[in-house]
């Protein structure tokens, strides 16, 4: 008999474990490209768990209870995303909403700490929301105009009948892929987590809060990769997903290793340019 809670728990565990291993692989690929041995692939997972046993001081200057609550909210939204994608095959606009709340989490974790690095990350999160959300939104908008639905289940059925959407909406796939690159560690568009502002919005979240953020970010990585593969390559088998996710992680690892972090203005302008080309180009392709 089908047990919904068991389905959800299994999917959340898979998202956390697979996401952690993929992010570990990402770091390994970056290291190897840079002629370093790099940490073992399991390092991200070990760090997430290790941080739970470290001392976690809550600075006196923080905004209570947001400092703690925002980390819980981050986990809550990515659990929601796992449910909407892997369990229910729900609406893409909901995923867009979850992505927007992720930008809010970056904004508030930065500003709630009172640290100048967090404040800079908070301001950069607002700038990058202005460019990342149209990028992701443009991608799902073009998908909507192609398939006339935002429902993931219906998009899967459409692809089973008409073939993978990567051929029908290639620019949407490009925009979605750039979104994935943005969410990768050490990404050229990762201005909220740039090393010039130490750790950005994560700077003042120590100890188990950092481990908690890492768990949520691993689920985020898994969900985004799963969505890209499902929306553009059609219904895949488990082997297909594994190979697809590893390939995407390797490509983003290569890009993160060889590109510098762009300055905030350039990052925003590059993303907006890609969005403009993607949306206008797709509409032009539909008309012609």
């Amino acid at each position: 008999m089908y047990n919904l809670m068991a389905d959800i728990l299994i999917n959340v565990c898979i998202a956390f474990l697979a996401g952690s291993l993929l992010l570990g692989l990402h770091r390994k690929i970056m290291a190897r490209v840079q002629s370093r041995p790099g940490p073992p692939i399991i390092q991200y997972l070990l760090h997430s768990l290790k941080f739970f046993f470290k001392e976690s001081s809550f600075p006196k200057t923080v905004s209570k209870p947001f400092y703690l609550a925002i980390v819980v909210i981050l986990c809550g939204i990515w659990v929601t995303a796992v449910i909407v994608t892997n369990v229910v095959y729900g609406s893409l606009l909901l995923i867009f909403g979850i992505y927007a709340v992720h930008k809010i989490v970056e904004h508030n974790s930065g500003s709630s700490s009172g640290s100048p690095y967090g404040k800079l990350s908070c301001v950069r999160a607002v700038y990058s929301a202005a460019s990342e959300l149209p990028l992701f939104g443009g991608s799902i908008l073009v998908l909507y105009l192609t398939v006339h639905t935002m429902d993931i289940g219906q998009i899967i059925s459409y692809q089973a009948a008409h073939g993978p959407l990567i051929f029908a909406a290639p620019l949407a796939a490009l925009m979605f892929f750039v979104t994935i690159i943005t969410k990768a560690p050490y990404s050229p568009f990762g201005i909220t987590l740039g090393k010039d502002i130490i750790s950005g919005f994560e700077t003042e979240h120590f100890g188990f809060l950092r481990g908690f953020i890492m768990i949520s970010e691993s689920m985020c990585w898994y969900v985004l990769l799963w969505l890209f593969l499902t929306l553009f390559f059609g219904p895949l088998s488990i082997i297909g997903y594994v190979i697809g996710m590893i390939v995407i992680t390797c490509i983003t690892g290569l890009i993160s290793a060889t590109t510098p972090m762009l300055n905030p203005n350039h990052s925003v302008m590059s993303q907006m340019t890609i969005t403009l080309i993607g949306v206008v180009g797709s509409i032009a392709l539909m008309i012609i």
Partner: peptide
Amino acid sequence: IVYAIAIIFIPFFILSLGLLTMAKP
């Protein structure tokens, strides 16, 4: 009800675990 329990109580489970396992100065 299952969705609500999953979304609310999985993060709270991890939070409470973290608050109990964290080292104290």
